[in-house]
């Protein structure tokens, strides 16, 4: 199954990363301050696991809501902007521009406007994952599937709902991949938001750990983030697969 493959693939990557760090540590004879020892990581893991796990869940829940918000928004604008060519190109230009701004520069402004509560985290998460989603949705929705749509057009049966249904169905693979991929962006966005402008979540915990130069904590946080993301993405992919199977029988 996709899910368990994702998890063990993550394990391999993570272990390789840690192994490289340890290799560096022991070959250069570095102290635990520079690179924590395996025992250090283990003890820290036991110490902070529960707290960090709930932090990651907290972050994930914001990321999921942020992703849903950006999905809805992307579809809304993608659908309304698909035909009006001026509006469509305007949206694309805006999307590219805003995407080019580093979120760390925008975040303090958002923080001033919205404070350090959940709204800021949500907005930044949505901002980071919204634009790539919008571009994909816009691209898909603006591309006619002539060989299917022709019949409905010439017989006067075409409705906008049908048009969207056809285009979404024909690009189901692309859509589910983009949605699963945007989970990473939503999570990254939330973590960045927490890092600069929040009082909760794993991003905030990472910031605190950085203040204390505690690399072991960071490694545990990275492990939990990677793990959670793998599971979440795996679930999204499995859902996407189920949808495709149910809808398209493939």
């Amino acid at each position: 199954m996709l899910l368990h493959r994702r998890i063990y693939q993550f394990f391999i990557i993570y272990l390789m990363g840690v192994a490289l760090l340890l290799l560096l540590k022991y070959s250069l004879n570095l102290s635990d301050y520079v690179i924590p020892s395996l025992i250090d990581i283990w003890h820290t893991g036991i110490d902070v696991f529960v707290r960090y796990f709930s932090d990651v869940m907290n972050t994930l829940s914001v990321a999921v809501v942020g992703q849903i918000v950006s999905l809805l928004l992307a579809f809304l604008i993608g659908i309304t902007g698909r035909q009006a060519t001026w509006f469509g190109s305007f949206i694309k230009v805006a999307a590219y521009n805003v995407q080019a701004y580093p979120i760390v520069a925008i975040a303090p402004i958002i923080f001033i406007l919205l404070g350090d509560g959940i709204a800021t985290r949500l907005l930044i998460a949505a901002m980071i994952c919204y634009f790539p989603l919008l571009l994909s949705v816009l691209g898909i929705m603006a591309e006619p599937i002539t060989e299917i749509e022709h019949f409905y057009k010439v017989t006067g049966r075409m409705r906008w709902q049908l048009e969207i249904k056809i285009r979404a169905f024909e690009n189901l693979n692309k859509l589910t991949t983009v949605i699963a991929g945007s989970a990473t962006l939503a999570m990254a966005g939330t973590i960045v938001a927490e890092f600069i402008a929040a009082n909760a979540g794993i991003g905030y915990s990472i910031r605190v750990a950085l203040y204390q130069s505690d690399l072991a904590k960071i490694l545990i946080a990275l492990f939990l983030i990677g793990m959670t993301l793998s599971v979440y993405q795996g679930l999204l992919e499995a859902t996407g697969y189920a949808v495709r199977k149910g809808w398209a029988r493939i």
């Binding site: 102290s31 301050y33 924590p36 250090d40 130069s213």
Partner: peptide, 12 residues
């Protein structure tokens, strides 16, 4: 605090 933390972790 950095120095003390580092000493705690065995840094020289």
């Amino acid at each position: 605090d950095q120095v003390i933390r580092a000493l705690d972790k065995g840094a020289a």
